[in-house]
């Protein structure tokens, strides 16, 4: 089983990590279904994102809001490489704490541990899974959206 560890920012009570070459911040939200980009949409283009030309409504404790569906290409988090990762861009969230919100669905079928005692986020990749992954947000016939994340 392969493993990688990212460090949590111990200054905060919620699990926040810095990742990538530019040290962008992400909130690990294990209650989230969709990954979210919280900043203006045009910045996503700098991160190899392309528009899917779809608008999605979603909800949380903050109520209902809307976002635009984008696909990030070759997006890396630790040892994971998402050749494609669909993400909702929503810059209407009030005072988001980080540029990204990472959802539970990004880590489907992986073994992960948020260790708030030692401020680590450990991810184990089982033998039958790859670190190369693909996350798609798919529209169903009834108009709702589902998330599928699998080894590529």
């Amino acid at each position: 089983m392969r493993q990688f560890t990212l460090r949590l920012d111990r200054a905060y009570k919620r699990p926040l990590i810095y990742f990538g070459e530019t040290n962008i911040k992400a909130l690990l939200d294990t209650g989230a279904f969709y990954p979210i980009w919280t900043q203006p949409i045009h910045i996503l283009a700098r991160l190899n994102a392309v528009s899917c030309n779809k608008r999605i409504s979603f909800s949380g404790f903050g109520g209902k809001t809307y976002g635009e569906l984008y696909t990030l290409k070759n997006f890396s988090v630790g040892s994971l490489i998402f050749t494609e990762m669909d993400i909702i861009a929503c810059s209407e969230l009030k005072n988001p704490p980080a540029q990204f919100i990472f959802s539970a669905t990004m880590f489907q079928r992986l073994v992960y541990q948020i260790d708030d005692k030692n401020h680590t986020f450990k991810v184990n990749i089982p033998q039958d899974e790859s670190n190369i992954r693909r996350l798609k947000i798919i529209e169903a016939k009834n108009g709702s959206f589902d998330v599928f994340c699998q080894s590529a």
């Binding site: 919620r14 209650g31 909800s59 949380g60 404790f61 005072n95 959802s103």
Partner: peptide, 17 residues
Amino acid sequence: VYTTPDSVLQLGMVEAM
């Protein structure tokens, strides 16, 4: 960097509508 993210935006259960 947002300075004090513990004090804003209750999250969790970001889900489909």
